[in-house]
Design a protein around this nucleic acid. Sequence first.
DNA 1: AGTATGACTCATT
DNA 2: AAATGAGCCATAC
Length: 125
Amino acid sequence: MKKNKKINSLKDQVPSDSKFTFFENVWDVVRLVPKGRVTSYGAIARYLGAAGSSRMVGWAMNAAHGVRPAVPAQRVVNRNGLLTGKHHFGSPEMMQVLLEKEGVEVKEDKVLRFKELFWDPMQEL
DNA sequence: AGTATGACTCATT
DNA sequence: AAATGAGCCATAC
């Protein structure tokens, strides 16, 4: 048919000796996102070979609080360009403020020119 | 150990 | 086009 979607699962790509590898990889990728650009959970998941596990990227972000160096989680939005994770910052407005401070325009929890600002690790790396 | 939930995404209706 | 269902898998209870 159209697509043979037999993609690796998280378990396939993460060695069983370190379950934190995936999170660290996610954090690394997020840290590589240039200032003023954004990416999506799914893009990161796919880049790490865990397509379909985009939720785990979200969990990684959840675990990214207090991680050093800091992870610019505000640069990660959903595929729609929507700031779905804004409630996980100190305040719901913080994510947007951070993004705007970096030059990303946000309107109604949505990244403007998302298509232009989108940074795909698959494509850029 | 089983169920529920989630910072997601895709296919189908 | 908007809503719904299903797949995904690590945590929480």
